[in-house]
Design a protein around this nucleic acid. Structure first.
Length: 552
RNA sequence: GUGCCUGUAGCUCAACCGGAUAGAGCGCUAGUCUUCGGAACUAGAUGUUGCUGGUUCAACUCCAGCCAGGCACACCA
């Protein structure tokens, strides 16, 4: 039974166990900090897995890294003779100043490929998330106008991150916080009302801080043409715009589980409830006629007003209640994606979470940087004030869902992104989306053309010996490592990088070796190989929310 | 003024708790097709990692100071 369990473990775990055992034998296990650094080397010539543990032990053990690495290697070599690692590792080498590099055997890679083919779609799924309940809140744009490119990037990043976490076995829900009351909503209602008067021939002054966009006219026209009797222009505006936003997101391929209304939150009395709790804990005090939250107790720079002297709430008040409610609804891990203008807000909210007794680590806030839109290499000017900003809709119409989602995720979410619409439209190697999708389509084409009676299901994978064949399996094998990076960095962008590299490896293989040939055994083995590549590319594209065409 | 982010090849960007000769794509140059999809492949040139110190066996990465750009600093949301 124990042995069977060990067989189920992946190679990384097995190796870590072997290294731990070796350290124990050498009496070095107490010297190191407990963290084993076993990872993919930057370069394949340094093996398939590598560790720098010898460097870390050098000082406490008072030996040179090289010396330590040599003795660990010797111990591990003995592990290879029997036990679960047998046959999986071709060679253990000490290289450089003391790196331990592990070279896995072809038989191991053949076995890996066999494994993923038998698992099929979803081979990449794991249960490391253990069903932990995660709420990821993103976009949450004010319902005062169509979504901009900034929101589009947040939508792409949040949705892909949610996909990744689901794939890793978390139980993920997507939520949009609807800021459906307050100043900006009043201004929205007022803007519509003014435009309506204008349409009726009245002379009006349209204030600078009101919404200037064309869509305000559209709403006013609709009211006029259909002869609607509008009691509450703000409510009308919110409903109308929410309809637009929902459609935009739907067309972008993003689906939310919940739309959480601030208005309903306030009416529910949950805000007063949480204030009661904070008051009891003496985290609130009155000063200058306002109610303050002692956020400095929890590391914020200064205390924050939650109830203004006129008796109304600040933005923070409902937000505190909102986040407490998230926990009350049973979520254990909250992830928020915010625009860069909310940067200064992080401390406050973390303080609040801390104040009602939750670990601030259970709230992760990701700042999604802006995207600048370029056309023909030149930046497109944007001005929110005059209602002239590039919208999600425009990008969708111009370049489509696949290219936009992929492009938005091509850089780390924390860094600025230049998005050139013209490149995103190109169907050449300049455009990474098509490069990846083309690899998928090519594979599908070959699989369809394979003669009757020949199938990857009957393949004997030991026929795969060529360099390009093994390289391709190795690349597929790296997929779980990449997912793990996405998880630890909470950033799906590494997937776009990986998919490009995977596609490149496939194209190189394809160029050098023919899949369908006279040798039936070899043909079947290669069909299995490209079937594996297809599974990996398709899974990666799924996670990004990009389609995986069988024909292009 | 205070805080945060950014600065790497001509351009856009990588470099996974500090690790091996800092890597890709585009662009540029020269090639590959009797071929399962040429939306492909091969080869070549390109660097004082903004500057100056410090810590370390090892620094693009950590620390300090400076320079440049961006953002945030409300009883707005």
């Amino acid at each position: 039974m124990l042995f069977k369990d060990k067989m189920k473990k992946d190679i990384k775990e097995l190796l870590q166990t072997a290294i731990n055992d070796s350290l124990k034998e050498l009496g070095l296990d107490k010297a190191y900090d407990g963290f084993l650094y076993l990872d993919l080397p930057q370069d394949t010539r340094y093996g398939d897995l590598s560790t720098n543990v010898a460097f870390r032990l050098s000082k406490p053990a008072r030996k040179s890294p090289r010396e330590i690495a040599d003795s660990i290697a010797e111990k591990i070599n003995r592990h290879l003779k029997d036990g679960p690692l047998k046959g999986h590792i071709k060679e253990v080498k000490v290289e450089g100043a003391g790196f331990l590099n592990f070279y896995l055997s072809e038989a191991y890679f053949h076995g890996y490929l066999r494994g993923i083919i038998s698992k099929g779609e979803g081979f990449i799924r794991t249960d490391i998330g253990k069903g932990k309940r995660v709420l990821i809140e993103f976009v949450s744009a004010n319902p005062t106008g169509p979504l901009s490119v900034a929101h589009a990037r947040q939508a792409a990043a949040g949705d892909a991150l949610a996909n990744v976490l689901e794939c890793l076995g978390f139980s993920v829900k997507r939520e949009y916080y609807l800021n459906d009351e307050g100043n900006q909503i009043n201004i929205l209602g007022n803007s519509i009302e003014l435009r309506l008067k204008e349409l009726s021939g009245e002379k009006i002054e349209f204030p600078e801080d009101h919404y200037q966009g064309e869509y305000i006219y559209d709403m006013a026209k609709e009211i006029r043409e259909r002869g609607l009797k509008v009691k509450d222009f703000s409510e009308f505006g919110v409903e109308h715009i929410l309809g637009i936003i929902k459609k935009e997101l739907e067309d972008f391929g993003v689906k939310f589980d919940y739309w959480y209304s601030q208005k309903k939150l306030r009416k529910s009395g949950k805000i007063d409830e949480v204030f009661g709790l904070l008051k009891k804990k003496e985290f609130l005090y009155e000063q200058d006629g306002a109610l303050w939250f002692k956020s400095t107790l929890f590391g914020d720079d200064k205390d924050r007003v939650v109830v203004k002297s006129d008796g109304s709430y600040t933005y923070l008040a409902p937000d505190i209640a909102y986040h407490q409610d998230k926990f009350k609804r049973g979520f254990e891990w909250l992830i928020n994606l915010w625009g860069p203008d909310h940067h200064g807000y992080i401390g406050r909210l973390k303080a609040a979470v801390n104040a009602f007794g939750k670990d601030p680590g259970s709230l992760s806030i990701i700042i999604v940087q802006l995207a600048s839109i370029f056309r023909e290499g030149k930046p497109v000017q944007m001005s929110t004030r005059r209602g002239q900003y590039i919208t999600l809709r425009e990008v969708l119409d111009e370049v489509g869902v696949d290219a936009s989602r992929f492009f938005f995720l091509m850089r780390r979410t924390s860094s600025h992104l230049d998005f050139d619409l013209d490149i995103a439209k190109k169907h050449t190697s300049e455009n990474p989306v098509y490069y990846v999708q083309y690899a998928h389509a090519r594979i599908c084409s070959i699989l369809q053309n394979s003669p009757a009676g020949i199938s990857f299901k009957k393949a004997d994978l030991s026929f795969l010996k060529e360099n390009e064949e093994i390289e391709l399996i190795k690349k597929i094998w790296q997929f779980p490592f990449i997912l793990n990076i996405c998880y630890t960095t909470l950033d799906p962008y590494m997937l776009t990088v990986y998919l490009q590299a995977l596609s490149e490896t496939f194209h190189k293989f394809y160029d050098k070796h023919r899949v369908l040939g006279d040798d039936q055994e070899l043909t079947q083995a290669r069909l299995a190989l490209i079937k594996g590549a297809k599974l990996a590319i398709a899974s990666g594209l799924d996670l990004l929310g990009v389609s995986r065409p069988e024909k292009m």
